[in-house]
Design a binder for these strands. Sequence first.
DNA 1: ATATAAAGAGCTATAAAATGCACTATATTT
DNA 2: AAATATAGTGCATTTTATAGCTCTTTATAT
Lengths: 72, 72
Amino acid sequence: MHLLELIKTIKKRREALQVTQEGLAALSGVGLRTLKQFESGKGNPTLSTLQKISDVLGMEVCLKIKNVKHTK
Amino acid sequence: MHLLELIKTIKKRREALQVTQEGLAALSGVGLRTLKQFESGKGNPTLSTLQKISDVLGMEVCLKIKNVKHTK
DNA sequence: ATATAAAGAGCTATAAAATGCACTATATTT
DNA sequence: AAATATAGTGCATTTTATAGCTCTTTATAT
């Protein structure tokens, strides 16, 4: 997942949960400014910031192997 | 995945591919110092740093929903 | 049309990430 | 034991993320 996908995922999830940026900022402990910057594509958040946001949205950051070909 | 898991995953993957920190730093464009700090648990890397490292190792950063209960 | 709520952006200060260099520690091999 | 390779750390600098405040933009509702 590249940056734009991550942003989109977060944003959609937040909206699906009907949380505002302000609400998410308060719940996650991340500054509102930081969250706004991130969602508007201006950001390069630290891992901890991304984790705080994800956690509140019921998501988690993970690492996946790319290009897994299933031998079927 | 919390920080320690991410670190462990990266480190194991790097070792499995028999790449040194120096090699990974060169390939990913991330500074050797940064990589060392990250692997030794001192870091809070930015997303872009994490992505550069992951990419070279054939992995990618992703977001997953937590606690998915499969209705079977 | 206007009030209200939510999101985006400029300016600024502070904290912290990224980086290089040099040194130390730890294996591993000869 | 000595040499070599790999990993970890202290120090210093530069860059950048975080954050708050204020203002603007945009959408929504009355």
